[in-house]
Structure formats: C-alpha cells, structure tokens
Computed example of a mutant assay.
Amino acid sequence: MENWQEISNLDQYDTPLFVVYEDRVKYNIEMALALVSGDLSRFRPHIKTHKMGEMLQIFSGYGIHKIKCATIAEAELAALNGMTDIMIAYQPVGFKIHRMMNLINTFPDCTFSCLVDNLETAKEIAAVAKEAGSVENKEIRVYLDLNTGMNRTGFPVAENVVAFVMALKEISGLKFMGLHIYDGHIHDPDPAVRAARAKPAMDKVLADADELIKSGFADLKIVAGGSNTFSFYSGIESVECSPGTFVFWDENYNRLIPELNFKPAAVLVCSVISLPAPGILCVDLGYKSVSSENPIEKRVVFPWNDDLTPIGHSEEHLTLKHIGPTDYKVGDRIYGLPYHVCPSCALYEEAQVVNDHHQIEKSWRIKARDKKISI
C-alpha cells in the first residue's frame, strides 16, 4: 500500500493524534462536485463529519455556501464561517427550539431551516417563534422529514405526504421548503442493489413533489441521502445531495461503496506503550480515541501494519495480536484508519493538518464537537 500517510515531523507530537491531509480533502471535495456535474445548487454537504470552521472556509473557496448539520453548535459554526443557507437536519423539541430561535436572531443574514415530522411539533416551533419575537417578517423554514425505511425519524413516505404538507401550510409562522430523506439503512456493497432499494421511495417522493408543485409549491426542494446513496441521488437532477463522510472517507465506506473513488484523508496515529506478552503489544488508542460502537474488528484497521489484529479494548488502551516478522518496540508509532470517522473525529479537540511535504504544519479546532459554542 502506498505510504501517503507518513509524517516526517511526527516525533514532535504526542499521541493519539487525529491527522487530516488537506490535499486529499480538496481532492474529495472536487470529486464530490464532479458527481453533481459541478452544479452547486445540487450540493449541500453535511458537516457532522468534520465539525471544523477551517473546513467550512475550504468549502467557501469552492463556492459552497449551503450545508446540512445536526446540532445547534454545528449551525452556529457554519454561520460564523461563511455558510449562508444552513439546514439543521434534526427536528428541534423542547428547549432546542428556543436555542434555534436565538440562532436565527443572532445571524439575520443567514437562512436557517429545520426538519419536522409531525404537526404537533411543527405547531410548537411556530408558537415558540412567535413568543421569542423572531426576526421581523421571517417565517421559520421547515422541511418535512420522511421515513423511507430506516425507522429512525420521519413521516412515513408511503402515507399521504401531500395531505400532511397541506396541513403544515396552514400553520402560521412556518414556511414549507421541501422534503428531506436520509436512508442510512441502505449500505449494500453493490451500487445497483443500493439504487434498486432507494428507487421505490424516491419515485414516491418525486410523485408527491410533482403534485405539490402543481398545488403552488413552485420552489419545493428535495434534499436526499448521505454518502451511501450519493451515487444514486447524484443522477437525479431535482435532488440536492447531502453527503458528509466523503471529506475524510473511512474504512467502512471504503469497503461498502467501491464505486466512489474518494481517498482516505484522515488517520489515527498511536504509539506502542507496552509489550506485555509474546505476540502481544498495546497502543494508546482506547475508547476515548477511536469510535467504539462497532465490534472490535470494525473500529480501526492498520493497513500499513497488516500483521496487527485488535483483540482487546478499554478506555486508554488497545491491545493487538502480532503475527509476523516485524520487531515492534515500545515507542513505535503506528498509523491506522478509523472504521467510522465521524464519531472518531469528535473525540479530539483538534486535528493536526499535514501539508504537501508530509509535515504537520498547523492544527484545526474541532469546534462543533462541543454541545454549545455560544448559543
């Protein structure tokens, strides 16, 4: 495997490290834009993977100013870093509605929107907006979140979507923007199978959208998918695509989505801290440094050290079985690829950024890993 990961000044840094390769990030952005034929109106990247202001500034350099996010902190970070059309792909409930109102009033030059999937919550959002005294003449923009089979959130796509939207339209203080889909349950390795699974729900969505457009919703938008169904939705001209993981890519998608030629752009660097028994070594990559929601074999891989296999994991330690001729020593640095990069990134306060000369030259604060920035 090509040794693109090597860092020449790594001895100046402690581990574990979350490291980003800026040239690879830019390559991935350019690849993503190429999939939508360079049409910026069809591209709304999700920022939950990186949560960094510097990444948003790179987006701006490519003319990208609309994004999707999941938290109020991510939305605030976006507003602070040049994004002007910010979708909070989450249905706010309880006090989160008040935080969203504060966000809208704090950044009047930005357009914010959120998701809803039931009329009761939609009415609560409208009521809180009126009570909060939101920006004059500015309705709260909402998208209808649709459940296409993931069964996480959303109004069932098979039900009467048009009737729901008509009822939503009657709620004073809200402005219906369009339909939202996230189908993270579709992750078959064969892109044809993924497309076949996504198509029936999308056909229903497109039919509903056509009916709504005929009923007067001329500017209706459809925001659909993540990285897993990006290749399918990028071929539908009326859809805004919203991948997130593409910026860093990870081992999971590298295996599951072979048709997308994104490059891994983030690695985890750890150190050997102990050789407790023959054929066993331990590195400083515990639960607190790599996402651990998957089984142990699907947390981190070591493609440049394929003689290492994870066998034990705890808060500050990862124990590895060693079968091979390599003579590992305490203090050796080892590069790994996270299996799920998004929550792994969120475990670090900052990312170290590598330049074209294989040196760490700066760091980027992973600011929106915080639950709150100021709002």
Rank of each mutant, 00 (worst) to 15 (best):
S8F: 06
I125H: 03
S292W: 12
V116S: 03
H317P: 00
E74Y: 02
E170T: 11
T106N: 12
G226V: 00
M55Q: 06
K175V: 10
A346I: 03
E74S: 05
M101A: 05
R141E: 06
D250H: 03
C345R: 08
S215Y: 06
R152P: 04
L260C: 12
Y27P: 00
A224Y: 13
G82R: 07
K371R: 13
G226E: 03
G133H: 03
I47A: 02
K51G: 01
Q12A: 06
G53N: 03
T106A: 15
E170C: 06
K66L: 08
Y335R: 09
V161E: 02
Y90N: 15
N137E: 08
E316S: 15
A196K: 12
I125W: 01
F112L: 06
P16G: 00
S8R: 10
K51Y: 01
I273P: 06
V239T: 05
Y62D: 03
H50K: 02
A196Y: 04
E237N: 12
L260Q: 15
I67A: 04
D306H: 14
S41H: 07
A198Q: 10
I273Q: 08
H322R: 13
S274W: 02
F246D: 07
W249Q: 13
D145P: 00
E159Q: 09
A70M: 09
V290G: 04
S113P: 10
S291P: 07
A34E: 14
F95P: 06
P310M: 07
F107E: 06
L103C: 07
V93L: 13
G94I: 10
K138F: 00
A126S: 12
I58T: 13
D208I: 01
G324F: 09
S172M: 07
S291E: 11
F246G: 01
D208N: 14
P16W: 00
D85V: 09
K371Y: 11
F155H: 04
A277I: 07
N151A: 05
E131M: 10
L281W: 05
K372Y: 04
T245H: 09
I125G: 01
F230Y: 11
K298Q: 15
